[in-house]
Amino acid sequence: MIIRLKDIEKKYDNVQAVKPIDVTIEDTFVTILGQSGCGKTTLLKMLAGLTEPTSGEILFDDQTIFSKSQKINVKPNKREIAMVFQDFGLWPHMTVFENVAFGLRGKLSKTERADVVRDALLKVKLEAKASMKPGELSGGQQQRVALARAIAVNPNLILFDEALSALDAILREQMREEILTIVQSIGSQAIFVTHDQTEAMAMSDSMIVMDTGDVVQTGSPEEIYYSPANPFVANFIGKTNWIEDNERMIRPENVHLYPQKNTTCRSGVIKKSMYAGDRYVIFAETNGQLWKFYDNHPHQQGTNIKLYVQENNIHSLTKQEA
């Protein structure tokens, strides 16, 4: 499905939560990434029909879902969308089976509902928990119930609103893989809202980066990481080394300790080393800038060092703080 947002915006009195934006979404798994308050959840809710845009149009393929000028606003339950929330949104008095079946009421017979629910629970590996209440489950299991409920209605599009933020780090990583696998297996599209850049980079076919209500860049994770459109994107996604006031930047992994082909050399002084599990992040002051690079061992504070960079790894843009 091709999703088109045409001049979509949202105002609350004098506050502009989402500025007029034009975005086309075609990929299977798309992430909307930005800091808290940037408008990403508001954008997601406009897609879902839970928040009415102030102006603009939303199209799913050739069908107009919303148009302010044409006075079209398709109801949420008619958009063939499912949504997974940060707080899971489960009914505590219902069993896992009943929670997953809830959205199927009035659509399928009792026997058909049972078959669909069992299949959904099988996909999320919770078939053995069908008779339990949400309060008896772990956070990860509750998240799986919410996902099963979403896929049970066979949506064309699943919207995830900070769906993993309530989970611990290890569980989040496991759920990322499971969500990707399940979305691919059912043939749906997914739009995933997050403020976590690692999550976005790992999961996305393409990304939409937002800042203060505006879409500042779209593209694949690789395009956005290596060719950020502006300083906000460069600082927000990944680690960045700025080259004095020349309005250029380079990523830490492209800083070397030994000469490479077509490299230039910079002198620096080690300030500190931070252990990051599989490597160390080393901070060095060079020409008045605090740079970061990676190594397999720590470096002694105060040590003089030579750093080498290749010109083709330097990206030019205007410097400002994120």
Rank of each mutant, 00 (worst) to 15 (best):
L157F: 07
A150C: 05
F97I: 05
V269S: 08
D168S: 08
L43C: 05
K125V: 09
R79N: 09
P231C: 11
W291D: 05
G288H: 08
R144K: 12
T194M: 04
G219V: 11
M132R: 12
T263Y: 08
N154V: 05
D115F: 00
G135H: 07
I65Q: 04
Q142F: 06
K19F: 15
G187E: 03
K261H: 14
Q184T: 15
Y225K: 00
D22P: 04
R266T: 04
G56F: 12
I158T: 13
G106D: 04
E173K: 10
N262P: 03
P53T: 07
M132P: 00
N77K: 11
W291Y: 12
W91A: 11
L90N: 02
N73G: 09
K110A: 06
G302H: 03
G219M: 09
L121R: 05
Q143I: 03
E80C: 11
F85N: 06
Y258M: 14
M201D: 04
L108V: 02
D211K: 13
L164P: 00
D22S: 13
L104S: 02
G135A: 07
F293R: 01
L121N: 08
E136C: 07
K292V: 13
N254A: 11
I72K: 06
I81T: 08
P134F: 04
M207H: 05
M1F: 12
G39R: 04
R4F: 12
I182K: 00
L159P: 01
D87F: 03
R266I: 11
R251I: 09
E136I: 06
R144T: 07
R149E: 04
E173M: 15
S204K: 02
E98I: 06
P228L: 03
K271C: 01
V215K: 01
R4T: 15
I170Q: 14
T54Q: 09
N304L: 13
